[in-house]
Design a protein around this nucleic acid. Structure first.
Lengths: 197, 197
DNA sequence: GAATATTATTGCACCCAGTGCAATTTTTCA
DNA sequence: TGAAAAATTGCACTGGGTGCAATAATATTC
């Protein structure tokens, strides 16, 4: 029993603190806004020192990024189940449909989404998130279809899909009749039409 | 001669200082890197006080954004000349072809492009620039084709085009045989194929 | 289980971007 | 020329982020 690697207090605590920081961070952002929340406040509420915060995250923004990564990861997880014969773009579209359903049905996620629209700084963070998502999406696509000659096509698909997701959200917010999923399908369909012609 | 509005010392000086700051800023970024350049250094070399810098730019990043805006503006200027009967996407593609030629032939622009790849921070700024360009591109498109029912199509075209431009640059850097213009055309063509099928 | 090696946490001093404010200088205009 | 308007500046302050060295917590070895 000298090697078997059970978890160990150290690792457990670290994971816990990491999660606490994300929780507490979002909590405070929702309470006081992003700008209005200092790292001192976050560290305080999480019960660590300000200095220690930086051994968990490189920056304040990293809290948002980390949270988003976990959310998006579940979508990518679905995508990995795609059979080889599928069309990449169809597969992505389908995964996104599920993704936005989850999104829509979680009050917490909707609240954070709201928050992200509230300040200029946060809108900018959001833009970064799209890039990161695109990159992660491409990474998964090229796991599934690793042929080098498809590389640029897959990058294009990732670019287009994330872009379409972004437009979908904008378009959905600009109206009230249609469901998020409907808007997604319409957006994908119309854009493909438009680009072909 | 009491009203005729010649330029006035005030306005001229302001414009001059503004330009000087962009020049000096980029100069220093190229010399010492973005991170390595402090606002003190920029203000110093431009012959103003640090505090005054902020009456010209909201932030350090703003220098980069302002420079980029002027460069991109010339491309948009070309676009505005597009006849109404043209296909928007074709028009944009053509304008981008000219745009990247200019880019390619200016040593200064190439140097800045290089710079932007050099640090993590600057890569992030670059990402923001793409969003801003997309927004500006859409604005011009909807000047030309203001019909509200085309709104989402035009947004899609802006999104797709800027995305394709981004991929073009990546793809071009990853090889040596083809010219930038060729890669642009190939990328546009292949992506449209891929998305339609 | 005590001694020792690792690794995490912390405090402290520091750098830099950015802001508010009030004093001063420069430009405008009557 | 003199008063009004606008630009520049200094100063003090906030908050994010880093380097470093001391200390505390956990892991490892005998």
């Amino acid at each position: 029993m000298a090697k078997p690697r059970t978890e160990g207090i150290r690792e457990r605590k670290r994971r816990e603190t990491h999660n606490t920081l994300i929780e507490v961070g979002l909590e405070l952002f929702l309470e006081k806004g992003y700008e209005g929340t200092t790292l001192d406040a976050i560290a305080d509420r999480a019960g660590i020192s300000r200095r220690t915060f930086f051994s968990y995250f490189k920056s304040k923004e990293d809290i948002i990024l980390a949270w988003n990564a976990t959310v998006w990861e579940s979508a990518l997880e679905d995508l990995r189940k795609t059979p080889l014969e599928a069309e990449p773009l169809e597969a992505v579209q389908q995964v996104m449909r599920q993704h936005i359903s989850r999104y829509k049905n979680s009050a917490h996620m909707r609240a954070i989404d709201q928050l992200m629209l509230s300040s200029e700084t946060l809108k900018q963070r959001k833009q970064r998130i799209y890039f990161i998502q695109e990159k992660a999406l491409y990474a998964v696509l090229s796991e599934i279809w690793p042929q080098p000659e498809r590389q640029w096509a897959l990058r294009g698909i990732a670019m287009f899909s994330i872009g379409a997701l972004r437009l979908t959200l904008d378009r959905w917010r600009a109206q009230t009749e249609k469901s998020l999923e409907q808007v997604l399908d319409i957006t994908f369909f119309e854009l493909r039409q438009e680009l072909f012609l």
